[in-house]
Design a protein around this nucleic acid. Structure first.
Length: 304
DNA sequence: GGGCATGATTACGG
DNA sequence: CCGTAATCATGCCC
């Protein structure tokens, strides 16, 4: 009986503290702890993963795919824990099994406590090496997850259709001055995130909006022709929106003549002549006089 | 797999 | 810091 006690006693600490605290194992343990895989359940886990996310990249703005990341992380953690438990249990069972065998043998030959201890030691070493493997592969999984989801270094996911719709709508309705203010960017970011929220949970940040507009401006400017169709589409769309919004105000639309020239958009510090409201109005009058939406674009993308 | 679209990053200028 | 321009790396469609 006392032998069993020794066995279980060893099994409890056998896994964690080999007398020389293996540096490799320590490293793995630390990492698992830091990533929130090992350690306390839900609460601590999310906090730890949040910390990990913050450490991984640009603090607040790497909350981009947080929920996704977290889901996968908890999955990993669950697997890790059940496996760990399984090993623990198997180790105990195996130990008692060996103990029983030894006890049986002790009837036919003398067995020293030393030998028993040695046996137990072997078993535990074996199992802890298996555990180590588990920890190693768990670490690997976490690393892969990390690099896949929130490593700062580029990992690109296209915005949702709706998000690009919203951004394009803004871009083309402010074509003459497509430089959203900070507040406007915030609003756009919010709008994009909201309309996307039921999907994969991707959220769009202000800096992403800035990136988007940066890319859009340069690419639009570089090849206006390529974007003509798109421009028409969104101009028409905003015109329709405007039509609904300001239908009552049509009466004084006679004020502006449809001859205002305007070239694409001007580079930054220049004044913009054609305000979005104005452009909407001309489009509006076009709609009402000419019938179908499409405003007139010239070959270089000018509006009227 | 090639090729284009696209989001992110980098280098540089105000 | 905000912008542009170039570039990178990935997504996506053929």
């Amino acid at each position: 009986v006392s032998v069993l006690c020794v066995a279980t006693g060893l099994s409890i600490r056998g896994s964690q503290e080999e007398d020389p605290p293996d540096p490799q194992l320590m490293r793995l343990d630390n990492m698992l702890l830091a990533e929130g895989v090992a350690g306390p359940e839900k609460g601590g886990g999310s906090a730890a993963s949040a910390a990990a996310a913050a450490a991984a990249g640009g603090a607040a703005d790497s909350s981009i795919e947080h929920s996704d990341y977290r889901a996968k992380l908890t999955q990993i953690r669950q697997i890790y824990h059940t496996e760990l438990e399984k090993y623990e249990q198997a180790c105990n069972e195996f130990t008692t099994h060996v103990m029983n065998l030894l006890r049986e043998q002790s009837r036919t030959r003398p067995i020293s406590p030393k030998e028993i201890e040695r046996m137990v030691g072997i078993i535990h070493r074996k199992f802890s090496s298996i555990q180590m493997q588990l920890k190693q592969s768990t670490c690997e999984a976490v690393m892969i997850l990390r690099s896949r989801f929130l490593d700062a270094r580029r990992k690109r996911r296209n915005f949702s259709k709706q998000a690009t719709e919203i951004l394009n709508e803004y871009f083309y309705s402010h074509l003459s001055n497509p430089y959203p203010s900070e507040e406007a960017k915030e609003e756009l970011a919010k709008k994009c995130s909201i309309t996307v929220s039921q999907g994969v949970g991707s959220t769009i940040t202000v800096s992403q909006v800035s990136n988007w507009f940066g890319n859009k401006r340069i690419r639009y400017k570089k090849n206006i022709g390529k974007f003509q169709e798109e421009a028409n589409l969104y101009a028409a769309k905003t015109a329709v929106n405007a039509a609904h919004a300001v239908a009552a105000a049509v009466q004084n639309s006679q004020a502006n003549s449809p001859t205002t020239p305007n070239s694409g958009f001007q580079m930054k510090d220049e004044e913009f002549q054609l305000d979005s409201a104005e452009s909407k109005n001309t489009l509006l009058t076009n709609m009402f006089t000419g019938g179908y939406p499409a405003p007139c674009y010239q070959s270089d993308g000018r509006i009227q």
